[in-house]
């Protein structure tokens, strides 16, 4: 009714006010610094029928973290957290190695891996949504026990040599289609599917509503428990996909050390992407940027030639800097500091 025609805000103003600007800026800065560290950093050529170079590597290596982070973004949107994603990856990887040894069809095995992730999500979701256990505790259970479950699965076939070959799975993980690494194409497909589920249905709105205020959402007719449950299942499924990519990548199931600390990287990616642990908002695209920032950072440390003792410190410092940039408050303080006067 009040169809007031609003003057469209200038593009540059919208960009500078957007919260997306800071993580993207951080990514650009990291890549520029890389150019100084390594002169041929931006070279991209074709090797073994696929694109090859540092920039491709960053995207390529960021895929598993980004997949996990997308699931994490939804769980965090409900004001929850999933610490068990690394363990879910270990379990789905162990199932892949086991079923390949057992001689199943590899397409079916892919389904097993993803379903296993989903079932882990069902477990987490049940504990959080229906038994009312705090998310950090509920998912800690699977985080602690999941890698043991993976080792037990390895023991099913003796556990001496959990390595395997699979043209299909390795094709998905390390192969390429028309010069482009398959996992990047796979990621894009999964991202679009997830985006459709979250943004083209009302699921995303419900998740944000439940995360923002569960009591109010219930009174608005949303079944908050079911939404929370579903978010953990989605997170598990995403970890299942990541498990397939990581396991096929190394041709082996290594439940003890695969994807160690990936939950922390995933949470960081969400936060760098503008998500808040207080819940209430999901930024899928920005979460992917967050994962790219983390991977770009990791790759630059690897090529920097710095002794490995510095890795974690540098990572921590850069992440801190990105988060400070994102905080309106901190930015104002920094600006005030430079101007040498108290900001109004």
């Amino acid at each position: 009714m009040s169809s007031v025609s609003q003057p469209s805000t200038p593009v540059w103003k919208r960009i500078s006010q957007s919260r997306a600007i800071w993580p993207i800026l951080a990514l650009v800065v990291i890549l520029i610094v890389d150019g100084f560290i390594s002169p041929n950093f931006y070279n991209i050529r074709i090797v073994e029928g696929r694109l090859f170079g540092n920039l491709i590597d960053i995207v390529y290596r960021a895929v598993p973290t980004a997949l996990v982070a997308l699931g994490m973004a939804i769980v965090i949107g409900t004001k929850g957290i999933d610490l068990s994603v690394g363990s879910i990856i270990a379990i789905s990887g162990a199932i892949i190695a086991w079923r390949i040894q057992a001689g199943d069809n590899h397409v079916v095995i892919l389904a097993y891996a993803v379903i296993a992730g989903g079932l882990c999500g069902v477990w987490n979701g049940t504990l959080v949504a229906f038994l009312g256990i705090q998310p950090i505790i509920a998912t800690l259970i699977l985080m602690v026990s999941g890698r043991g479950v993976g080792m037990l699965i390895n023991l099913i076939y003796g556990g001496t040599d959990p390595s395997f070959e699979s043209a299909f799975l390795q094709g998905l993980s390390t192969g390429s289609i028309g010069y482009i690494p398959t996992r990047i194409l796979l990621f894009i497909a999964i991202f679009i599917a997830l985006w459709l589920v979250v943004r083209k249905t009302a699921l995303g709105l419900f998740v944000e509503s439940v995360g923002g205020n569960a009591a109010a959402s219930n009174l608005a007719g949303i079944n908050a428990r079911r939404i929370i449950f579903v978010s953990y299942v989605i997170c598990g499924v995403m970890a299942g996909w990541a498990g397939m990519i990581m396991t096929a990548d190394t041709h082996t199931s290594d439940p003890v050390s695969v994807a160690l600390y990936i939950e922390l990287d995933a949470i960081l990616a969400v936060v760098i992407g503008g998500g808040s642990l207080m819940g209430g908002r999901i930024y899928l695209g920005m979460t992917v940027i967050g994962a790219l920032v983390i991977q770009a950072l990791t790759t630059s440390i690897l090529i920097s030639g710095l002794p490995p003792e510095y890795n974690l410190i540098i990572k921590a410092l850069v992440v801190l800097f990105v988060l400070l940039l994102q905080s309106d408050n901190a930015r104002k303080q920094i600006v005030a500091l430079f101007r040498g006067k108290h900001n109004e």
Binding site: A202, G212, N213, A215, A216, L219, A220, G221
Partner: peptide
């Protein structure tokens, strides 16, 4: 505490009951 989801927009707060009545598969 029970009425609004403070972070969501006015628009989203207004349509959310209507949306939950329609179910998540039929987005407005």
């Amino acid at each position: 505490s029970e009425g609004l989801v403070g972070e969501l927009s006015i628009r989203e707060n207004i349509i959310i009951s209507m949306q939950s009545k329609q179910g998540w598969l039929k987005p407005i």
